[in-house]
Structures are given as C-alpha cells and as structure tokens.
Design a protein around this nucleic acid. Structure first.
Lengths: 385, 385
DNA sequence: GCGAATTTAGCAACAGCGTTGCGTAATAGA
DNA sequence: TCTATTACGCAACGCTGTTGCTAAATTCGC
C-alpha cells in the first residue's frame, strides 16, 4: 500500500511485515531469530508476536531448549490463516490459483477464454471460476482479495487496462472497478511479469535482493524487483525487455524497430534452433545484468519452460563468461519455482503483499488518491451479501 | 542512511526530509504548502517547521495575506546553513565542488591528476584542494562531509574501490576509510553515474520520478534513480549500460563481447560521424525506456556535451518515434543542469542526502554493519584537531 | 535434593512521534 | 466596534518502540 505520511501505524506495519517475512522464509522461528533479523529489541518483538498471534497469523509450535535456561518458544506461520486468489489473464486462457499466506499454491485451474474476449467475457469467466473456489465458507472468511495479472500496457495505480497487446476490446477499461463490483472483493491489477517477480520475492523473503523474472511466452518480458519492491516504472510499463534492440541491422519487429530481442529470438524459434534462441535470450539477460546488477535471475514462461534446461544452461553460461568479474557479479540463475502458476500466484500474492508485506512509503504522491482496503482485525471478506 | 529497524526517529527524519524537499524545490513555501505536499496535519507540520527553524535549516521570509484572516508565515530554505564537498575522480583530473543545502554549486575547481595515479596521490590532491576550500572557518563549521564519485567497480556500502577501470594501483582500496582518516570528515564513496543522478534528483525534489542519467565520457554509463532512491544494484555495479549488446555481429568491445553500445558508438565517433554516434546512443536510451519505463532522461558527460544539441535532439526524436504509445510513455529529455559539475556535485549531494534526504529503510540487511554519522543538533564538523 | 547460574519472557514506566480538540492571534469587512 | 475568517500553537491523547526490572523455567554444581 502506497502512503505518503509516516505515522506510527507505518512503524507497526513495517516491523510486523518483517516478522512475517521471517515466518515465511524459515519454517519455524523464535523471538531471538527475529531480533537478529530485524534489529528490534526483544521486548518489541514480543509485542509484535503477541499481535500476530492474536490475529491468528502465527502460532506457537513447540519449544527449543537452549541447553541451559528457560526454553524458547518456537513459532510458525499459519498458512491457512489467510488466502488470496490470483488470475493470470493470457490471450487464450484464464488461470486461477488459490494461494495461502505462505505463498504456496493450494489450488490451480485453467479454463479457456474466447478468442479476442471482451471485458464482460473475462468477468464472467472470473466469476464462474472464483465462485467454485469460494464455495467453502471457512475459506471465504479468510479470503483477502483477488489479484489480476495480465499483459499491458495498463495503469496499475488506477486499475486501468490501457491497451492489452493483441486484444481489440481493451482500451482504457477500468478493470479493477468492474471486477470489484462483480466479485465484491478487493481487486489488484498489475502486469503479468511484475506479478510473477512478486511471487518469487515473497517466497524468498526479505533477503531477496535485486532480481528479474524473465518470461518467454508469446513475446519476451521482464519483471523487476529492485530495492525491496516491484519496479513498475513511471507508467506501469517497465518490463518491455523484449523490445530492446540487440541487432541494429536485424529484422523488423512488430513494434517497428529493427532487431529487437523478441524478433531475433522468434526467428531462431521459427527455425527450430532452440540452442540459438536460448543464446539470444542469454545475451539479453546479460544486457540486463550490466545495466541493473541483479542478484537473481528467474526464468519462466510456457515457451521457455518447454526447453527449460537448454535455456537455463545458456543463461547460466553467459552470465559466467560474458560478465567481467563474474566471480562476484554473477547472479543466481533459476527456473521459476512455481512453474506455469507463477503469474497467477504472483497476482494473488500482490494482494497479500499489500496487507502483510513491507509497506512502501513513496514521497511526492498526492495523499488524496490513496486507496485503503486493509482488513483491520477481524476482517470477514465482503462476499456475503 | 540505511537502517532496518523502524522506530519513531525514522518518522521524524522522514517527514522532516519531505519538508526540506519542498523547501529545495519551491523557492518559498508556507505551512499549507507542506500540508498539501505531505498529507501531514497542520499541527505536525508546525512541529517540523519549528525543529528545522531551530536548527537554522529554514527561516521565515515574510508573510502572505490571504485576503482575509491572519497572514500566513512564508518560509525559505537557508542554503548557507549546510555545505558539502564533492569530488569527481576521473582518469586524469580531480574536480572539486562546494555545494550548499539547496544543491547549488558554490565553488568549482579542476586540477590534474598524475597519469595512473595511486591512492596516496589521490589523497594528497584531495587534501590540498579541500584544504583551500575549508580555510573559511564559518564554512568549516557547516561542512557535513565529502563525497567521492569515481568509476567502478566499487563497493558503495563498505567504501571500497574494487578495480577502477584503467587504473593499475586500485584493487580493493578502502578509500572511504583512508579519506576519512586524512580529511577528518565523513566520506561517502559512490560510482560517478550514481552520484550524478542523485544531483539531478535532489535538485528536482520529491516529484522526481524514475530517471536515468546517461553519461558519455571515455565510455558510456548510466545512473539510475528508481522508486525515489538511487539504484546501485546488488554489488554497486549497476549502470554498465555501455556494455549492453546492440549489434550481435558488431565489433569486439574491450569487455570481450560483440557489438556493445560503447564500441559501436566509439566507431561512429572515430569516424567523426557525430549524428550517427548520437543515433546509436539514442537506440540505447530507448532500450532503457522499454526496460525501465523512465520519466526523465538526463544527458551528461564531456564527450556528449561537446555536441550537446545533436545528442539531445537525437534522443528526443528516438524517444518520440521509436516507442509505441509515446504520447504517454515518452520521458522528458534534458541536458544536465549542472554541466561538467554534475558528478562532483552529486557526490557532495549524497552526503547531504544521507543527512537531510528521505531516509531509506531496507529490510533484510544485518543491523550490525550500519554506519552512523548523522550530526545531531549542533554538529560542528571534525576538522578542528 | 537444593541453591546458583542462565536464558527467556513480560509487565510497567517512559520518550517521542503524529493526531485531536480547542483556544488565541491577526486580519478584512460590515 | 463587532464578526467572520484564516493561521497557528498549546495541551492532552493514542500509539509506537525502548528501558528497567521482575518472574518463570530450565541446567548444573554441590
């Protein structure tokens, strides 16, 4: 949640989020763990833990005997205490996942979408899919909201789809408002790749540094996690990484430029030269590294995962050989831990992240447009009426 | 200053920094201005203003009569209340500037450095240059520290120069410690381009969004300002933007890859084809935009400023024609407002920014290594002994 | 067995932040 | 002179994390 003024509630949310991040990362933790990770005083940690226990987000899970002295109480996150639904809106399919507070995917479904679907058709499909998930009343009470991940350009702050590439009926659609009205749940709208990298960051916890999620799926995109938060850019349009020129005299791309990464990669794919396609992508990834100095590179997307190991190996090798001082600059290169669910899961996690993640405090934004839908205390969802 | 724990002093520093940012941007301001910009209550703003006035950072500058009612007190920043010294360490020259709290360059000198200079030689030159600046005792009392901007790779957090490109005697030099011992002042070390973009951001105030400083000066580099803070990357190595491949089959670059932006640009420069060199740079800039979605692009560097208008026009045009939906995605393209001083000024401003800028709160960093040299209250400098 | 040492944990008082309620000062206009 | 209006701060408050100290639970030595 973006806010400008820094009051004491920010402190509470911030430190609480840090404790939850520890809980997500480590399977179990105790007071001293949190003290070491956050730098808070033991007393402050006790207060935070008391609050989180009262809300049911964490619970005691035994004790640890430190040899001598009073045993330490061991805590664990309660994954089932909160849920969020995520949707990955692709060109032909709608993927829905149910994610718990730990960031684990508990349920996943895919349904087809009509060719060149309209906003109304998408909302129908969303309602139908989410309706079946929320039939369980115990779950419904713990549902925090719905996240939508889709292709851009879109306006994250205002929940507006500007022009979804390749879809005719999508110009300046206020999708967040429409979905909130239909679903009667808080809705969060973001670009697919940004949602994806949020999933990886949330699951890795607070130690997750600057990172990118590279996605190859009917186009090439990148989601960025920089400085502890998703980087969306000035107009929520960051990540059009496929449209960076890597070959000045290359073929013309759909975007009008010559030799974009995407079109060069496409040519290799069309020639069924997977190794070359992977090498091309790897060059683009190294370009990113030179520019942004990332700690982690995560690979995802249907077209990439079909040849996952070829791509991973190519990127891994390029990162080691093409970067000077790779001995200390090379990032970890991994395949997405969530596979095909990563976008949908990330969209769901963005809802959880708004409520229980590190709050962001961006100065300079007008305070009037701040949206507030944090369920304080005994939030019950709003799907009952 | 990086901190992990969020206590009430963070609130104070954060809101105080917001008020100072307003004071830097607007020549004069009043309580209602700050209320609108920050979202704080009028009473809270009064408290902050009282603190800043007591510290001498702002002062009353008349009243404004709102037609009816009690006149509002108008305030202004006191530029002379704090100073910082900045150094731009280039391959053959050392540029020193004196910057005031408003971010204005008050004094600027350039002196040659020996070819392939050693750390000791640099420290000598620094001491000599800074000594003459700090002769004025009134100034010395208000000096907050020294910032050093130089080429990498270096380790910003630990003040270590890893390997300065093209300088033989620079491997793992603890420059910050050495300089602090010699100068007896707090020292801040950072990459040249990162310092440069900090200068632009500080001078533009809190409304400065995601931005890049593109620097062409014996190589091509980029400094990034993302999400309200400098982006340094996982190892302080972000910005090696010149070493991104734009021509797969291009000439070999000094870094070993083929067709880096830098080498392609260099070939055009060697052929004295300035328009082509500018177009090549522009392609690189558009690549950045596609990836990061920036709101501002600032051009700088001696080699670029020699043909400033050619470069500016080329980038401006590329940004308008090569980006889809440029009507709302195109950034502002400007030349650095500080000219050749931008790096040195930015290095100085980083010192001011640590003390009076928006504090950053990065979770996950071990709290033990946090450096603290904030001069609380009546800081007097430490150059007296 | 029993007391000392050790480690964990929480209660109570405190300082500092922004917020709220309300009184006061300063001006223009009637 | 009175009233409406605007600016501004004092005082009390709620909330945060911090500090000082006490209590609880355990191991170890005698």
């Amino acid at each position: 949640m973006t806010r400008t003024t820094a009051d004491v509630t920010f402190l509470r949310d911030y430190n609480q989020a840090q404790v939850l991040a520890v809980g997500r990362t480590a399977r179990t933790f105790e007071r001293s763990t949190v003290v070491a990770a956050t730098g808070l005083t033991p007393q402050a940690v006790s207060k935070v833990i008391a609050r989180l226990s009262a809300d049911g987000l964490i619970r005691p899970a035994g004790v640890r005997r430190p040899g001598i002295g009073k045993p330490a109480v061991v805590y664990e996150l309660v994954p089932d205490s909160r849920y969020a639904i995520g949707a990955h809106v692709a060109r032909r399919t709608l993927r829905l996942v149910l994610v718990d507070l730990a960031g684990a995917v508990r349920h996943s479904t895919v349904r087809p979408l009509p060719a060149d679907f309209t906003p109304e058709q998408l909302l129908d499909a969303l309602c139908a899919g989410i309706g079946t998930i929320t039939e369980d009343p115990a779950l419904r009470d713990r549902l925090t909201g719905v996240g939508l991940g889709m292709i851009g350009p879109l306006d994250h702050a205002n929940g507006l789809v500007r022009d979804a590439h390749g879809l005719r009926h999508w110009h300046d659609v206020p999708l967040r408002e429409l979905a909130e009205a239909r679903l009667r749940l808080p809705v969060h709208l973001d670009k697919d790749v940004t949602a994806g990298v949020t999933a990886e960051a949330w699951r890795h916890g607070a130690t997750f540094g600057d990172a990118a999620l590279i996605m190859v799926e009917s186009g090439i995109g990148g989601g960025f996690w920089l400085g502890g938060a998703a980087h969306r850019g000035a107009h929520t349009n960051a990540g059009e990484f496929g449209h960076t020129v890597v070959d000045l005299d290359g073929p013309v791309c759909v975007c009008g430029r010559h030799g974009c990464l995407e079109v060069v990669h496409l040519r290799a794919t069309e020639a069924e030269d997977v190794p070359r396609a992977a090498r091309v992508l790897a060059i683009g990834v190294v370009n990113l590294l030179q520019t942004l100095d990332l700690a982690h590179v995560v690979l995802a997307g249907a077209d990439l995962l079909r040849h996952a190991e070829v791509y991973r190996a190519a990127v891994e090798q390029a990162v080691r050989t093409d970067v000077r001082r790779a001995d200390w600059l090379a990032p970890t290169v991994t395949l997405s831990s969530l596979g095909a669910d990563v976008i949908a899961a990330g969209a769901a996690i963005q809802v959880l992240d708004q409520l229980y993640g590190i709050p962001d405090l961006t100065p300079g934004t007008p305070p009037t447009t701040v949206r507030q839908h944090r369920p304080t205390g005994d939030y019950r969802g709003i799907s009952s009426a």
